[in-house]
């Protein structure tokens, strides 16, 4: 029996999927780091917040009301959940791209961690878990802001928090997987080149009906599925399609996590 072929999946799958005790250690580590520099945590939160304020101040009145599910909403009510989803994406992407690259290439953190009982799967799931926590914090902060501005349309809004965390999971997994293929800091120029179009064209600012014959392309954006979930919760308007949105996000998360684990193993356990 080829022991390498057997041990490789054993090392990734059960630990990553079934045990969260070890991955938690990576979150514990991040807590140590952020305890001293918690302000940096907020960085990804301000951009969507400023958009929201700007729209609320001027744009909303110009655009007028939007009808969804037989009810009408003001434009800022419509946009707010989209921006909340974008904040969750930002949190995850910040945490799992440049940060992870630094830890792989420069600080050698993962090499030190992999010399202990921790596995590549533990490291990947732990770092992604940390990003989910960050996304969750952004979502909560954003939800409180929305509530203060009178933009919460439904008590179902509480479900927008787990929806935002799922978005975080998806983007952290995909971001980390992508990061393992990057060779230098220049490659990170591509990150905003991906996240900015996603931010603009994921039904964040206007409904799917406005996209006309390009609507199918919007479906390719993971953020679109996230925006739809957060908006459904926030406005309290939903149908069976949310199952599909959840399935897409969960599917992408699992693929991203598996690729990230595999790649970390490839890169560091040579």
């Amino acid at each position: 029996m080829n022991t390498h072929a057997v041990s490789l999946p054993l090392r990734i799958v059960p630990t990553a999927m079934l045990s969260i005790r070890r991955p938690q250690r990576m979150i514990e580590r991040s807590a140590y780091v952020y305890r001293r520099g918690w302000l940096i945590l907020l960085s990804g939160f301000f951009e969507p917040l400023l958009y929201l304020l700007s729209i609320r101040v001027g744009l909303s009145a110009l655009v007028g009301d939007i009808e969804m599910g037989g009810r009408t909403f003001s434009y800022d009510e419509f946009v707010a959940p989209g921006l909340m989803a974008a904040a969750a994406m930002n949190g995850a992407v910040f945490e799992c791209t440049a940060n992870v690259f630094y830890k792989i290439k420069h600080s050698k953190l993962y090499e030190a961690v992999l010399a202990t009982p921790m596995s590549a799967g533990d490291v990947a799931l732990g770092e992604i878990g940390g990003a989910v926590v960050r996304s969750g914090l952004y979502a909560i902060a954003f939800a409180i802001t929305m509530w203060a501005l009178g933009l919460v349309a439904s008590p179902w809004m509480v479900l927008a928090i787990p929806a935002a965390m799922l978005i975080g999971f998806t983007f952290a997994s995909l971001g980390m997987a992508l990061t393992t293929f990057m060779r230098s800091w220049e490659d990170f120029e591509y990150v905003p080149a991906i996240t900015l179009p996603l931010f603009l064209f994921s039904t964040t600012f206007y409904p799917l009906s406005q996209y006309g014959e390009w609507a199918w392309m919007v479906g390719l954006s993971p953020l679109y599925h996230g925006v739809e979930l957060v908006r459904a919760a926030d406005l309290g308007v939903w149908d069976g399609s949310i199952i599909g949105h959840i399935a897409v996000l969960v599917g992408l998360s699992v693929v991203g996590l598996a690729v990230a684990s595999r790649r970390i193993e490839r890169l560091l356990l040579t």
Binding site: R29, Y32, S107, A112, T116
Partner: peptide, 26 residues
Amino acid sequence: VVPQLDQLDTELTVAENLLIYGRYFD
């Protein structure tokens, strides 16, 4: 393991380095 090049956690203090490392060992 004491690796050839130090792989200390540069974002943490001396004590924190030891604490979190112990946590990796459960």
